[in-house]
Design a binder for these strands. Structure first.
Length: 159
DNA sequence: CAGACGATGCACT
DNA sequence: GTGCATCGTCTGG
């Protein structure tokens, strides 16, 4: 399966109250303290998972939450993993994205420069990027750390 | 070891 | 806009 990320949020450091590293190192968030470029997938609300990419130097906990993407390849598998709906909604939310791609907490710690679960540059040149507050959080909600393509039909919360 | 809570999605008003 | 399912993780005792 392959998809183009179109919506992300940044969670940066122990000083960011919405960041999972805000309480300091714990069993769950340790990977955020490691080197950048690794996956961090956590379980939330008893039924969903969220996929993150660890960023910043080793020792400084930060990550980017991937909130939405446009399906590019492996659509049949994504549909099989998801309830019925239009293809452009398959990955239109952090929980839906993990469900369609089959990502769970077991996918934490993958080297995203490797060949199993990875990020690649296909040369795509995006248009306008919209910057807003982060979604679904209480603490740290005023920070403008959400970034999404202005013209993508796959951005979360759209029809 | 009990209890609170959450980086969501979906149904419903 | 509101309500809620459902459970791993963390906290405090």
């Amino acid at each position: 399966m392959a998809a183009r990320m179109v919506e992300v949020e940044a969670y940066i450091g122990e000083d960011d109250p919405a960041c999972h590293a805000a309480p300091g190192p714990t069993r769950r968030n340790v990977v955020m303290y490691g080197p950048p470029g690794f996956s961090y997938v956590y379980f939330i609300y008893g039924m969903y998972h969220c996929f993150n990419i660890v960023t910043e130097r080793k020792g400084f906990p930060a990550a980017v939450l991937v909130r939405a993407a446009e399906p590019i390849a492996g659509l049949e598998m994504m549909r099989a993993n998801s309830p019925a709906g239009p293809d452009h909604r398959l990955l239109s939310g952090p929980g839906k994205l993990c469900r369609a791609l089959g990502l769970t907490a077991r996918h934490t710690g993958f080297d995203l420069t490797g060949d199993k679960l990875f990020v690649a540059d296909d040369g795509f040149a995006c248009g306008e990027i919209v910057i807003t507050r982060r979604i679904g959080i209480r603490k740290g909600a005023e920070r403008l750390f959400r970034f999404h393509l202005a013209d993508s039909p796959a951005v979360s919360g759209r029809r």
